[in-house]
Amino acid sequence: MKLREVLDIALEAGEILLRNGAETYRVEESITKICNAYGHPCEAIVLPTGIFLTVYSSEYESETSVRRIKVRTLDLTKIDRVNSFSRKITYNTMSYEEARKELEGIKALKFYPVPVQLISSMSVSFAYALIFGGKITDGVIAFAIGALLYLLNLYMAKSGYFPFLMYFVIGFSSGFISMISELLIPNGNAYIIIISSIIMFLPGVAMTNGIRDLLASDTISGLTRLGEAFLTVLALGMGVWLAILTVHYII
């Protein structure tokens, strides 16, 4: 296999991993594994926003390439598949076309259908409303708001707004509906409804992953992730706060 092709396969695998929310060390490890499987040493720098990779051959030639990554989501199945792909390739190396085809197959894997995701995002809100000590009525309202927020998220992600506007709108609608329902329904608790309906958007896992990167001395990645988590929670919090102010102003 040519140097160019090794570079292409390794970058493609790295891009799928990074795009779907793998940890930085896993991306670097997988890229190194793939290059070493074809007998080439390599140097990789992985940031949350891009991959830099140089592959060397034995004759001191080298090829370098850069990939920019803009959108990142979390998709555990794709991480799993690329991980086992990179492990498989160390035991029996495949040709360029084979590897390329396998990666295209991984890329084309689908999410769960929208109704299943809708129901599970509603159930998340319901479950957390009860875990945080709300009553059944709080749970039912959170259940309904969960559906609305999921559809809103789906629509806004498709229309390509920048993520922080999306979080702001999500926070605002959650806060607004919760405050209104607290007024209409006796002994409701708006605070519990709000936190349980936005629980899937709160960056708890992102914060933890950021600190994990820092501890693994991927300093730049860690700080980037922490900054992103901070902005996310800021956008959500400001959205909710504005909604609460609006409701107080109206009444």
Partner: peptide
């Protein structure tokens, strides 16, 4: 990671961070 990320979701401090901003 497949079991780790869903497993820590009930424990992570997302709500604390939100409460801080609030």
């Amino acid at each position: 990671t497949i079991f780790l990320i869903p497993g820590i979701i009930p424990l992570v401090p997302g709500v604390d961070a939100y409460r801080t901003i609030q």
